[in-house]
Design a protein around this nucleic acid. Structure first.
Lengths: 212, 212
DNA sequence: TTTCCTATGTGACTTTTATCACAATTTCAA
DNA sequence: TTGAAATTGTGATAAAAGTCACATAGGAAA
């Protein structure tokens, strides 16, 4: 993407006022990352807050044994509440952030976050909405983990992936799915076979097609 | 508690400046609730943000079938990020809040939240810190649910309860513990018996004593 | 083609958790 | 004191998930 006022205006529509867009252009850093790029690791120090322009980022929580659980995705024009709280409270990251696909983003330096909050009401609104959304996402993650069985969670995960990328075919291994659901590869393989028998998915090597 | 400037000053120490304390006195509502009092239910509309003076509140997430999972506790001088996001975004509650014991709190009306954020930097800091803490709490809840077995979670729950109330004996039934961990009474009974055999707890009717 | 690596399939088994049924115990109130 | 309700104990069994071992298959590179 061209990183100029015109394209910013196109992307952010009426979300931000012009003065804010000018500051974003001035102080923000445009960035493009490939699928699999690790944006943040637990313990990492966060110096800026990302705003996603296109693509999507998955946010994972890891335990000490290296197991991981998917928390949620952030996509177009979303931002990350973790980085917000971390920036504003000068804390280290407690999560992992990985690009799910080729992703464009703008990095906002930490010192501007607070400054803009008093200066631009649209920015303040953006920050609050981000908190709201991420809380909802986390609650959703807890719902999944606490109240649903693995087969439902697996199907739910595939559906969310479909929604994120706007397609119904994924190049992903059972091993990777197992990691996102914090379980083992064999379990995923069996559940997928079950779902295939029910006509909900179609399986081939490195590929899963979601039916319906 | 006497709800006046002197006691507020005693309680809030250096957390808030004097001008803010005066406004809290003016616009806040002092409230005392008994154990079991339901402060908020899913779908409820939130018109104010509570600040806990003493006691503790437990925050639960319910699914559609009425099962519940404990998210976290909020205690002295803490506030609730849910009510913050809900207030600031004019949304309904997605959680349940119940007094775990006799609890004193101050209710801050929604319109003051934003106003004070631009007016008092200590209030802004308080709001951000609240978000930070609740995010950490939610991540902790996810850790427990996703990565730990029930016996560990049960012991963890008892330990957190001990920390909250500053004692090691609880008046609680197995049924209630089951609800907080989103499982059945029988499972809790068996796990508690196990823990008793290991010398970690002492059981009697309506009472559990934590050893060590 | 052959070889090798990665990915998937699957049986056998264990552990963990859930469910059902009913007994035993404690407490409180009539 | 007696009965009812609440609480806890426990066996039997099932369902869900995790683990180990090894077989099979697909695709890339030599």
């Amino acid at each position: 993407m061209e990183f100029n006022l015109k394209t910013l205006h196109t992307r952010f529509g009426k979300l931000f006022e012009v003065g804010l867009l000018e500051e974003i252009l001035l102080f923000g850093t445009y960035m493009e990352v490939d699928e699999g790029h690790i944006l943040m690791k637990p313990g990492g120090f966060i110096r800026n807050v990302p705003i996603i322009l296109s693509g999507s980022i998955k946010i994972l929580r890891a335990d000490q044994d290296g197991r991981e659980a998917l928390l949620y995705y952030i996509g177009g024009l979303d931002s990350c509440a973790m980085s917000l709280t971390c920036c504003l409270n000068h804390r280290h990251s407690e999560i992992t952030a990985i690009a799910e696909e080729k992703t464009e983003l703008i990095l906002i330096p930490v010192e501007k976050i607070e400054e803009w909050m008093t200066k631009y009401s649209t920015w303040k609104q953006f920050v609050f909405t981000t908190y709201q959304k991420r809380f909802e996402d986390l609650l959703g993650a807890i719902d999944q983990i606490a109240f649903h069985k693995l087969d439902e969670r697996l199907l739910g995960l595939l559906n969310r992936k479909a929604k994120q990328c706007g397609c119904s075919v994924f190049n992903i291994t059972h091993e990777e799915l197992g990691q996102e659901l914090a379980t083992s590869r064999e379990v995923i393989s069996r559940l997928l076979k079950q779902l295939e028998k029910l006509g909900r998915v179609k399986l081939s090597r490195n590929k899963i097609e979601l039916i319906n």
